[in-house]
């Protein structure tokens, strides 16, 4: 697991790029190595079972994603992992410029101690991009600075839940949770969060 995380990180750092559609990857790292004989088809592709009557599915501009990774260990590392990192890198780039601008001004506001204004700005960002983990990361940091550990942690957890597929974001969020728990005096909890962070 850890190796895989490190590998993914390294690949991201080296900026490995693959082609593909605009889909963020889905990772499931808790999953045991493909347990059954009938392995799922290559990641990102549609299972081509014949479709008839009932519900038809027309994916518009994106491909449905089912499950990704794991196969890194079963011999197809390069393709799969480059795919993963491309998605992750793309995701970083695809944050709406409006949200980027709001995140920037929220950071500035927070640095100058205007937590209220920063919170308002982040809520604007959240309304525009409610599935962007970076927004929750910043929201959590603002609450942490204001000493609201409980909400800080919950917001970070919400970020974690939206970061599936982005190892760097997962790492960042679990490290933040560790810091929050440290600040709140929960040493063991912090330790657990750091161990989680290291998995990515």
């Amino acid at each position: 697991m850890r190796k895989l995380g490190l590998l993914a990180c390294t690949l991201i750092l080296t900026g490995c790029v693959g082609g593909g559609k605009n889909i963020a990857p889905i990772e499931d790292r808790s999953r045991p190595v493909v347990p059954r004989a009938q392995v799922p088809p290559p990641s990102g592709s549609i299972i081509n079972a014949p479709v008839e009557s009932g519900v038809t599915v027309n994916a518009i501009d994106h491909q449905p994603v089912q499950q990704v990774t794991q196969r890194a260990q079963s011999g197809t590392e390069s393709t799969n992992d480059s795919w993963v990192t491309a998605r992750a890198a793309e995701r970083e780039h695809r944050v709406n410029p409006a949200v980027v601008a709001l995140l920037d001004s929220a950071r500035t506001q927070a640095r100058s101690g205007s937590y209220s204004a920063a919170a308002s700005t982040l809520e604007r960002a959240q309304r525009i991009a409610p599935r962007e983990p970076e927004v929750y990361y910043e929201m959590s940091r603002v609450r942490m600075k204001a000493g609201d550990w409980q909400q800080a942690e919950q917001l970070a957890l919400k970020g974690v839940q939206l970061s599936a597929g982005s190892a760097p974001m997962m790492k960042k969020l679990w490290n933040l949770i560790a810091d929050i728990r440290d600040d709140a005096g929960d040493r063991t909890g912090a330790q657990r969060a750091r161990i989680k962070a290291r998995r990515y």
């Binding site: 994916a59 089912q66 995701r91």
Partner: peptide, 14 residues
Amino acid sequence: QRSFRWFQQWFRQE
């Protein structure tokens, strides 16, 4: 014969 593909769309990310 039956299709249960609908849930796949569910995992699409923005």
